[in-house]
Design a protein around this nucleic acid. Structure first.
Lengths: 160, 160
DNA sequence: GACAAAGTCGATCAACTTTGTCGGGAATTA
DNA sequence: TAATTCCCGACAAAGTTGATCGACTTTGTC
């Protein structure tokens, strides 16, 4: 049930891009890597995959870099995770995008399959309905929350 | 987001045991392996782990074998998956049973973490609230369903 | 045009994990 | 004692993960 580093880094980079001031133009891999603490060359590889999938667009040369190819509310985490991490389903026989039949005599009465189908649906429900825009929005709300908490309790250490 | 073969085999074996007529006594690894098409020696290893965790009990020698150590409604898939497959959480910083801090400056405002927490909760909600008894019950219902469907349409090929 | 700053690409690699296998031992029953 | 079954640790082949590398192409600037 684990998300790979590839998936993790990819999502972080995309969130970084989505929450970046659009006026600043494209972001370079080096910038993002430094910002998010990701090995540069590994991230390069990931960005390429994201680009080939049509999620990012890029421009080489001075002033170049990567930017989202679509508005953030049209990029779901489901797409990204499937691309970088493979199918969401815990077992292939419950995958919608990478279905593979299993060995059990009857898929419709297989206990394992029945439960894993629930799991895959729960995961897909979240990831396919969460866009980059949703994420950045949520992050902002969380930031405001902690900010206002600080306002009420200016100094953590003293107020104990 | 994948379930390992270890986890898969373990769950299948447990379901097999749970849906087995208790009057027949313990089941041998060989039987279960043949029944569920699992490599015998690999299953042996898995059953041992399940036993050491207190989920199974065993008896060596002729007439021996494995049986559930507790009633099926007291064994959750969550326990089993965690034991055989590791934490449910996609990333360590949202795990309840194997928490590890992540590198991001503030966990409370990390977009990745916020969404993955949802995912981990969705998974845990299902697996921690699904017992072996639930599974076998559901399997029986599914079997009745397909059985009654057969009654209404006795011959599949002809009724097309 | 030359140069620097990016992205592009394919290959390769070490470490780790997964999925088993093997050989012998210990407990239990007949 | 013999057969059966679980118990245990070691090991190994194959696959996956998480990178790294070197050479190349494209773009903008002087």
């Amino acid at each position: 049930m684990k998300l790979s580093k590839r998936g993790e880094y990819g999502i972080k980079a995309l969130i970084d891009l989505a929450s970046r001031d659009p006026a600043r133009g494209a972001a370079t891999v080096k910038e993002i890597a430094a910002h998010q603490k990701i090995p540069v060359q590994f991230l390069e590889q990931i960005m390429r995959a994201l680009k080939n999938a049509g999620i990012l667009r890029s421009k080489p040369g001075a002033g170049g870099g990567y930017a989202l190819a679509k508005p953030p509310d049209q990029i779901t985490l489901g797409q990204v995770v499937r691309l970088l991490d493979g199918p969401l389903a815990p077992i292939p026989c419950v995958s919608k995008t990478a279905y593979q039949p299993c060995v059990c005599p009857d898929e419709n009465t297989c206990g394992l399959r029945l439960t894993m189908l629930d799991v895959r649906n729960a995961i897909a429900d979240i990831l396919d309905n969460t866009t980059l825009a949703d994420v950045t929005h949520r992050v902002q709300q969380a930031q405001h929350l902690t900010a206002s908490r600080k306002l009420r309790q200016p100094s953590r250490t003293r107020s104990r």
